[in-house]
Design a binder for these strands. Structure first.
Lengths: 165, 165
DNA sequence: AAACTTAGTTATACCTTATAACCATTATGG
DNA sequence: CCATAATGGTTATAAGGTATAACTAAGTTT
């Protein structure tokens, strides 16, 4: 058990270092904590550029896929359409992307990056890469790649990739 | 680049499957998506018990460390003290834990699980374990353990564990 | 042409996290 | 010993992320 004495409140704080031992066996708990650390660091890295994790992601996908529609972007980012609206508003107000009329469909917008958007996107990717380098310092490179691969498989379970089960 | 034709909006949706290729190289993005999947599944598993990820975590730590104080619990769970108050309220109202007066300090509460709390905690751990088994089906067991180890190191970077850099 | 669907939007609600400020109590230090 | 500081718990508040229903305008189907 976590500590030896019966009442945790009486023990010095040191004896609580493994107080979440039971939870640590669950990937969800550990992932939540790791993600929180990463997200904070990432947002801090992006804040000087006026971006957050979400707006950064949206910007990158628009730069890589100019002309795509909002619903497509929402699907790519795996977020709901209504939640994308404010993100696009924000990027548009910042002059990084613009909503152009779609030639095919008068309901839809074709999202395109501006020159500024492309430029800031490059800067932001460098900032995020520096953050990623901090992750890489905690892990050996093959380990980092294995981590990403494992996360990907959790997100999209493929048949045939299972273990001994 | 993601697609071949210049305008993403004109291409079939299939050509957008790798539209987030740039982002995928960053662990933060992939972790966010994987965590979202895990968290949804986990919360769905806990909802029938009247628990969420956070209240479950708090309950488990209280059961494992009876008598600890709220501030200690907050530190163990790495959340701010004010944010714990409602969680404790919720668990107390559900009759799973209770705030007992601390013998040492009249300001503090000693958190203790009730019998019901202990029982539900066991049930909940089983439910979460079943969820974890779903993760385990996507990964080989050594891979799952490597994942948890990697996440832990991201959360708490230790010196000397670095790669080639 | 009527009915259905889709693109984008608005409004709303809930959860999580963060901060400042407060009260009661305990600890510190002249 | 009393003034000051620090701590435990609380309240209020704000911001971010996510989810759903409902609306409009435009496109699609039959």
């Amino acid at each position: 058990m976590p500590g030896s004495s019966p009442r945790a409140g009486d023990r010095p704080d040191d004896s609580l270092i493994a107080a979440d031992r039971t939870l640590r066996q669950f990937s969800g708990y550990t992932m939540k904590r790791a993600f929180h650390v990463i997200q904070s660091d990432l947002n801090a890295a992006l804040a000087p550029l006026g971006l957050r994790m979400l707006s950064f992601s949206a910007l990158v996908v628009v730069v890589d896929n100019p002309g795509l529609r909002q619903s497509q972007l929402a699907e790519v980012l795996a977020i709901e359409r209504p939640n994308l609206v404010l993100v696009i508003d924000e990027l548009e107000r910042a002059g990084l992307i613009c909503r152009n009329p779609s030639p095919d469909d008068r309901r839809a917008y074709a999202l395109d990056p501006t020159e500024e958007g492309r430029a800031l996107c490059g800067t932001a990717i460098h900032a995020v890469q520096e953050h990623e380098d901090r992750v890489a310092r905690a892990l050996a490179e093959p380990e980092r790649q294995a981590l990403i691969a494992a996360l990907l498989r959790i997100e999209t379970p493929e048949e045939g990739e299972t273990s001994d089960g």
